[in-house]
């Protein structure tokens, strides 16, 4: 009993330490990790260093200063209602990271248990779950997210739910594959023969050992999820004014791009940097965990 239950732990620790070594070895991945850390700090400390938090949090307007180009006073310029874009873009980091975490988290929460159950139990349950998954997978994710968001009505929460609905089947499928490969492994068999209840085996042995591909995939998806939510906001299906969400800011900026071309630049750059960082991290993690490309 003690042996299989404790088996993965030291290996995981060692893996983390080893992964850390590999991460620092790949410069692009290091950069990605660095940016993500900086973004987290920015998001947490936003209220401390932003000049006009009220422009971002409450959306207080200051129309006399509308559409000012970037200057020492307004680093990124102002929007059509005279709000400091720097403050809004910085606060937007919080929203985007929140969206990423919540939407991916929700998708994992739906997708992982289903994949686990399908893969471990097999048979009829597997059949049903995978058929449903197939149906969801036959929609391009952005399309499904748009359709669901349009149905649920316009709000950021609904946009996140829509994204989760579009994303969970990927985790189910991935999870199921991993679980099936683990199902017949000796330590699982051993646990089974010792009479451990199925749910306990699923959680303590199979789940713990099959999470790493899913986690890698989730970190890769973080970027696309942020992009998708911005796309929804851009189409008017996500954030609501005056939320300083990047997609919504860009969507508004589009109305002024001939008069104020700088308006769209900074929120867009912020988004590119964020998504890029997560993609680099995700790629790096995948290379590390994939034995085929793993370098020593």
């Amino acid at each position: 009993m003690a042996l299989p239950a404790n088996r993965p732990r030291p290996a995981v620790l060692e893996q983390i330490r080893y992964s850390g070594y590999l991460i620092t070895k790949n410069s692009l991945t290091t950069v990605g990790f660095g940016i993500v850390l900086v973004l987290l700090v920015i998001a947490l400390l936003a209220p401390v260093f932003v000049p006009h938090p009220e422009h971002a949090v409450l959306g207080t307007t200051n129309v006399a200063e509308a559409l000012r180009p970037p200057s020492g006073r307004y680093l990124f310029g102002t929007d059509e209602l005279g709000r400091d874009l720097f403050s809004r873009v910085i606060y937007g980091t919080r929203i985007s990271l929140q969206i990423g975490t919540l939407a991916v988290g929700l998708a994992l929460l739906i997708g992982v248990p289903l994949g686990l159950v399908a893969g471990y139990l097999g048979g009829f349950v597997d059949e049903v779950i995978m058929r449903v998954t197939d149906i969801f997978l036959s929609f391009p994710p952005l399309l499904l997210a748009i359709a669901v968001a349009a149905l649920l009505g316009r709000s950021l929460t609904n946009a996140m739910i829509a994204i989760a609905i579009a994303w969970w089947p990927w985790y189910t499928r991935l999870m199921r594959g991993t679980v099936i490969s683990l199902r017949e492994k000796p330590f699982v068999e051993a646990a089974r023969m010792m009479g451990t209840p199925a749910t306990r085996i699923m959680v303590r042995h199979v789940l713990v050992n099959s999470l790493s591909p899913v986690i890698v995939q989730a970190s890769l998806d973080f970027g696309s999820v942020i992009l998708t939510s911005a796309a929804l906001s851009f189409l008017g299906l996500g954030a609501q004014p005056p939320q300083p969400e990047w997609g919504l800011i860009l969507s508004t900026a589009r109305n002024y791009f001939l008069v104020a071309p700088w308006y769209s630049f900074f929120p867009g750059m912020a988004m590119v940097i964020t998504v890029l960082a997560f993609n680099l991290v995700g790629d790096g993690l995948r290379e590390i965990t994939d034995p085929k490309t793993r370098r020593l």
Partner: peptide
Amino acid sequence: GVSLPTFWLAMN
């Protein structure tokens, strides 16, 4: 390429 928000690229 995969990190660019499509509509932002378009606007730029």
